[in-house]
Simulated assay, not measured.
Amino acid sequence: MDAVTAKPFSAEDFKLRAARQSVFEPGTDYGDHRLNPDLRDMIVRPNLRDAAVLIPVVDHGGDANVLLTKRTEKMRSHSGQIAFPGGAIDPTDASPEDAAVRETLEEIGLGAADIDVVGRMPDYVTGSGYRIVPVFGIVRPDYLLTINRDEVDDAFEVPLSFLMDPANHRRESRVWQDKERFYYTMPFGERYIWGVTAGIIRTLYERLYA
């Protein structure tokens, strides 16, 4: 099956797009500074902490969904926010892909047997001091979750077609340190996707679907 015959927004189509995305250009970086160029030197800096997240695309046949989590309110950072499963890359992790799968297992009980890793995006740099590797994973639709309530309040699916529609990408702003700062949001029903997660989703759209 090729990109012509694969149904748009299916897991198979996503996998094909991931495989043929453009080569990572040396020196190209994505991150929170894309909408705020004056913050680049503050965000893209040495000694960033390495992390990895999984972008879990659930294979429902013709129409895939993306599995997201809601972090608990008691987390020290990004509490209560919508997020991809993931976290810091440990010295014992063989690769960012291994770290993303390990963290997914620890957070929501979804393990390597349920995930087919099919690639990654360029690193995404955050204002909170992380260099994140977004890892692509195709997930079996009959998965069972075991949610770690110390880290995650909930897990839910959002249609890939919704997230990859630029009409659903809102460019909003707030004043921070006396300057207007911009960011993306993607409200979905009662869910409010914003911050790093929305930034990674927007980058995914720009690289694979725009």
Rank of each mutant, 00 (worst) to 15 (best):
E97Y: 06
Y205Q: 03
M42E: 15
G62H: 04
A210K: 03
E107L: 14
V23P: 05
E103D: 08
F156R: 07
V53E: 09
P166E: 14
F188A: 08
E172W: 10
A210G: 13
R171D: 14
A3Y: 13
L35A: 14
R149H: 15
L105K: 03
A3T: 10
M75K: 06
Y205G: 02
R171C: 14
T104E: 01
P159T: 03
I43L: 09
F9D: 05
V58K: 02
G127D: 07
F182M: 11
S128T: 11
D50R: 11
V4D: 14
L110G: 04
L35T: 11
F182S: 12
R120M: 10
A210H: 05
N65Y: 02
D38P: 00
L208H: 01
R120H: 14
P8Y: 05
E190M: 04
A6F: 12
Q81T: 10
G87R: 06
K7Y: 14
G129K: 01
V175G: 09
A11E: 07
A64Q: 04
S79C: 08
R131G: 12
Q81R: 09
T28D: 12
P85A: 05
L48N: 09
G62T: 03
P166G: 12
I82T: 10
D59Q: 05
I201M: 02
D32V: 05
G137K: 00
E172R: 12
V53S: 09
V158T: 04
V57Q: 06
P56R: 04
L204I: 00
V44M: 10
G31P: 12
D13E: 11
A99T: 06
R76D: 15
V118W: 01
E190K: 06
Q177A: 13
D123E: 11
G189P: 12
T185G: 04
H169A: 14
F136A: 03
M121T: 02
D142S: 12
D142A: 13
G111Y: 00
D59T: 05
L54I: 11
T203V: 10
A11N: 10
G111H: 01
Y209M: 00
R149C: 15
G137H: 01
A64K: 00
E180K: 14
S79V: 04
P26M: 14
L105C: 00
S22L: 12
R149P: 15
D29Q: 01
D63W: 01
M1Q: 04
L145A: 12
Y183H: 12
A167G: 07
D41N: 15
A113Y: 05
D50K: 10
I200M: 03
D142Y: 15
P37V: 05
V125F: 11
Y124H: 09
L145G: 07
P122S: 02
